[in-house]
């Protein structure tokens, strides 16, 4: 038996929307600690890892040790788009061998003594569990900046090139691209905004390095401004995947690992 409720369906929709940028379907792993979703995109460029802890939900109950539900993200997103922002979202699942396995999605809107209700059932599919495990890495470099700023730069670069080059230095980040017709060059410096800390850029780069990334992926990560207006990028070097993270309350959040492009 599984039941979880959320008063902000918009946030869950944003999470599913972010995942569906790269992944068609994935296993939702419900445990007593909360919900975890992880998947590698078909091009093996980005690994998406989402945690929504039990305390992140307004109500959360999972009686099973671990419940693995294979979900088509596109269909789930369609359902979530039907939910009004002022509704209470409820996800539920009952283990019943006799019936088709499905995840129930319900939206309730308070109307005084009564409630308006919309109910959906999402048919589940079997997906082989992932074999890859995210290794524990000791990140030596870190950068924190406004998500909107990363989005703006990635969107601009995407107009010119499929590849963006990030050069992390001790006191600056250079983001650039070049094509046959033009080049673009952005410089981002650490800065503290005393009136609005969320505008600040902080960097702690111990070992400067340069990495090329696929622009489209960085742009899609930066769409997560609804999740967190700040993005934290953790790195080691050009050979190790970079981590882009957007944290939420109660130890929850979305985290991406992205592989760089290497020059032979």
């Amino acid at each position: 038996m599984l039941e979880c409720k959320l008063q902000e369906p918009k946030v869950f929709r944003s999470v599913v929307e972010a995942m569906s940028e790269h992944i068609k379907e994935c296993n939702f792993e419900f445990t007593r600690e909360g919900l975890k979703m992880q998947a590698l995109d078909s091009s093996h460029i980005a690994f998406t890892f989402v945690t929504l802890s039990a305390t992140w939900w307004n109500e959360y109950r999972c009686d099973d040790e671990a419940l693995l539900l294979g979900v088509n993200l596109e269909t789930l997103l369609k359902i979530l788009k039907c939910g009004p922002d002022n509704s209470l979202l409820a996800l539920s699942y009952e283990n019943d061998d006799d019936e088709v396995s499905e995840l129930k999605v319900k939206f309730e809107v308070d109307r005084g003594e009564k409630k308006d209700v919309a109910e959906f059932a999402l048919k589940l599919t079997h997906i082989d569990p992932m074999e890859e495990e995210v290794p524990e890495l000791t990140w030596t470099n870190e950068l924190e900046m406004p998500t909107q700023e990363l989005f703006r730069i990635a969107r601009d670069i995407s107009l010119f090139s499929e590849i963006m080059v990030l050069e992390f230095d001790k006191d600056k980040l250079r983001i650039s691209c070049s094509s046959k017709e033009s080049t673009a060059d952005y410089l981002v410096h650490p800065f503290e905004d005393s009136t609005n800390a969320s505008n600040s850029v902080r960097m702690n780069i111990e070992a400067p390095f340069k990495v090329s990334l696929t622009t489209h992926y960085v742009l899609s990560f930066a769409k997560n401004k609804n999740i967190n207006e700040r993005v934290v990028i953790k790195m080691i070097d050009a050979e190790t995947p970079l981590m882009f993270s957007f944290s939420m309350k109660e130890g929850s959040g979305i985290c991406y690992y992205i592989a760089g492009r290497l020059t032979d």
């Binding site: 992205i258 290497l262 020059t263």
Partner: peptide, 14 residues
């Protein structure tokens, strides 16, 4: 053009 690294390979290696 730089070659795209394969994330699956990276995680299998570690």
């Amino acid at each position: 053009t730089p070659i795209q690294n394969d994330l699956a390979e990276f995680y299998c290696m570690v």
